[in-house]
């Protein structure tokens, strides 16, 4: 009986600890879960803004970035097991090798390390979750910044 009560209390403790502990996931964790983000991109004096819709499909994170009126900028597909990201359907103005390379690397880092909320510097980029909500990736040697803010109902 004592062992039974002990095991129940341990089970309850672990459930409570799991429910209350740890930061909430920034990106969709469960299959078919969807989330929307306001996105800002600053490349020097060029600013882009828009909305990113992301969904977990077949274990991958699949997303579309579009402007406020629904004009698509690009799609992406991130495989969390391999840590690889593929871009597709880029607007012609973004479809340059150096933009593709930068976007691919930045999004890989954001999706790979952005979930835990721990600030870190990696591959010349600073990744941090700001107190006002957004997850921001800043290039340390270039004037380039990408921010994701969750859109809440």
């Amino acid at each position: 009986m004592r062992e039974f009560l002990l095991s129940i209390s341990l089970l309850l403790w672990s459930v409570v600890a799991r429910a209350s502990g740890g930061p909430e996931s920034f990106f969709p964790k469960d299959e078919a879960q969807r989330a929307e983000y306001a996105v800002t991109m600053d490349f020097g004096r060029v600013h882009l803004s828009g909305i990113c819709v992301m969904k977990r499909i077949g274990g991958e994170l699949v997303g579309t970035l579009m402007n406020e009126f629904g004009v698509r900028a690009f799609d992406f597909r991130y495989d969390p097991h391999r840590g690889t990201l593929k871009l597709s359907n880029l607007l012609a103005l973004l479809d340059r090798w150096y933009i593709r390379k930068t976007l691919r690397r930045d999004l890989q880092l954001l999706l790979r390390y952005g979930d835990d909320g721990v600030p870190r510097t990696i591959r010349g980029r600073r990744l941090e979750r700001r107190t006002d909500g957004p997850l921001v990736l800043t290039h340390l040697r270039r004037d380039l910044k990408i921010g994701f803010s969750p859109l809440n109902p």
Partner: peptide, 8 residues
């Protein structure tokens, strides 16, 4: 908005 990639 139709999002064929996201099936949404």
């Amino acid at each position: 908005k139709e999002l064929s990639l996201l099936q949404e």
